[in-house]
Nucleic acid binder design. Structure first.
Length: 496
RNA sequence: GGGCGCGUAGCUCAGUCGGUAGAGCAACUGGCUUUUAACCAGUAGGUCCUAGGUUCGAUCCCUAGCGCGCUCACCA
């Protein structure tokens, strides 16, 4: 047991056992969802119990309001919260045991649905059963858990003790489910591709490294599923998607978690314009499904995610906000100096830094930025009317990148050349070697294909108005508690 | 990794111009049959993040460390 287990609560459980009652009984009760009772509650008139309308609910007990011979308390299940009333004259046999009940206990309650004098829908209990004793007292009743660290570390408390948290994760679940429905309706197959990669490709990011004992070799946790999904297209699957957990060994921020979920989809015979259509209609669909409207408020600003979204060319935006041409190296370098940017080593990275410093703040969105330079798009197909550019776009809302898509490069020779260029940079974020197997896949022939990646976590952030990615992840990455620190951490369960 | 801020009761927070701490809620005892932050009376609860230093004396000042948040950099 940890320090969190309260002596009084342990004593109550012991007393129950001494009488032959199990504080952790083996079965629950058959219960109705509370939301359904609330929805049907309009027909219940005030006040007092409505005879002959017995219902059973199961959930977590909130703060008890004890009037001596009458106790009110809220009970919460995953669908909602409903008040129960425990009256002495309705519970004569149980009444002497009422002090064994604590806030946080899990209970099953049966009784008649009615109202109180104040008109609140209430179950007037004829039976109450402890389903699980809660040894650890819940957080203070009206602040809930406000210490952010405690909220993330003890999400199992935060979910029911803090307002709105459950709602966010229900919406997240709905979003993921609607993504599947939307794509399956368009003939997409959901596939699962490896997380353990021999070469970390498909994006530029530092990977996590792990080791396989039997094979005695290192693997990388995937930084993107891209190259495997395109192998699926070569294999003839034509329309595939994966909701992929990706892992990137980089900084943690309000927009970045070391593991995050990305929707990636690939469609044969499509180009990047088709991907824009999917991205904007999918986002609109998700907003309607989750919020019932395409208007979303995020970080204090209202956005409308109703399709179609405006499109702007990268080169055009560059010209407008950086006041020079993207490939005018002396001018761009001068601009970079003016902005105080440090030289990242390669011109094209520097150019993109200038873009981010000058343009991104203007991308309130939703907006598609299109036609990126080829040098920063190693997997994208060149534009037929300008070989300096690619058929690529990124989707922005609130200056935050939500997605990235392009017509896929399917020329194996050109792909191999770009891989070799990347490897030659010796950039720690570039792949360490050429993915020969992927080049070989292309040699068999990948049909004209377009692909799209959307950050699921960021979409959830926007659609639920959460400022931090941590608030849309059930268990965000945190530094593990050191053994010595664990002894000091006030509300952390200690090792037993 | 850099900058800024925070760490005091189970929870939310005061406070001590340096003299070893207080409120509300939670807990416990008693009262109360319509509350919903219920109320009333009482009781108990603290290595003031850790380690050094300055000082007669440190929870307070200084240094270092640990943890967290915000922010910048890298990225999605």
């Amino acid at each position: 047991m940890t320090d969190l287990a309260h002596p009084d609560r342990l004593a109550k459980a012991r007393a129950m056992r001494a009488r032959g009652q199990d504080p952790f009984p083996p079965r629950g009760v058959v219960a109705e969802p509370i939301a359904g009772l609330i929805a049907g509650g309009g027909t219940v008139e005030a006040p007092g119990p409505r005879v002959g309308h017995k219902v059973t609910i199961a959930g977590r007990l909130g703060a008890l309001r004890d009037f001596g011979k009458l106790i009110f308390a809220p009970v919460k299940d995953v669908t909602g919260t409903l008040q129960i009333a425990l009256k002495r004259d309705a519970l004569e046999a149980w009444w002497p045991l009422r002090k064994e009940l604590d806030a946080g206990d899990l209970v099953g309650v049966t009784g008649e649905l009615g109202r109180t004098q104040k008109g609140e829908l209430t179950i007037w209990a004829s039976e109450i059963k402890l389903l699980t004793k809660s040894y650890a007292p819940p957080p203070e009743k009206w602040h809930g858990l406000v210490d952010v660290e405690a909220r993330y570390r003890h999400r199992y408390v935060d979910l029911w003790a803090s307002d709105g948290v459950l709602e966010v994760f229900k919406k997240r679940s709905k979003i993921v489910s609607e993504v599947r429905r939307f794509l399956e309706a368009q003939g997409y197959l959901e596939v699962e591709t490896p997380v353990l990669h021999p070469i970390a490709g498909g994006a530029t990011a530092r990977p996590f490294i792990t080791h396989h004992n039997a094979l005695d070799c290192d693997f990388y946790l995937r930084i993107a599923p891209e190259l495997y999904l395109k192998r699926c297209i070569v294999g003839g699957l034509e329309r595939v998607f994966e909701i992929a957990r990706n892992f990137r060994n980089e900084g943690i921020s309000t927009r970045h978690n070391p593991e995050f979920s990305m929707l990636e989809l690939y469609e044969a015979q499509a180009d990047y314009r088709r991907m824009m259509e999917i991205a904007e209609t999918l986002l609109e669909h998700l907003a309607r499904a989750v919020n019932g409207t395409t208007k979303v408020t995020f970080r204090g600003t209202e956005y409308d995610v109703k399709a179609p979204f405006p499109r702007e060319r990268y080169t055009e935006l560059f010209r407008r906000h950086a006041a020079c041409e993207f490939d005018d190296e002396p001018a761009v370098r001068a601009k970079a100096r003016e902005l105080g940017l440090k030289d990242p080593g390669s011109y094209w990275k520097l150019m993109n830094d200038v873009f981010e410093a000058t343009v991104e703040e203007h991308l309130t969105g939703p907006i598609f930025v299109t036609d990126y330079p080829v040098q920063i798009s190693p997997l994208a197909k060149q534009s037929p009317d300008d070989p300096r550019l690619t058929e690529r776009f990124e989707l922005f809302i609130a200056g935050m990148e939500l997605g990235n898509a392009f017509s896929e490069l399917n020329d194996p020779e050109e792909q191999e050349r770009r891989f070799r260029e990347q490897v030659a940079t010796k950039d720690p974020e570039a792949p360490g070697e050429v993915d020969v197997d992927y080049v070989q896949a292309l040699e068999y022939g990948m049909p004209p294909t377009a692909g799209l990646g959307l950050g699921i976590d960021r979409i959830v952030m926007v659609l639920t108005n959460q400022d931090s990615i941590r608030d849309v992840l059930l268990f965000p990455a945190l530094r593990p508690i050191a053994k010595e620190a664990a002894a000091q951490e006030p509300n952390a369960p200690k090792a037993t």
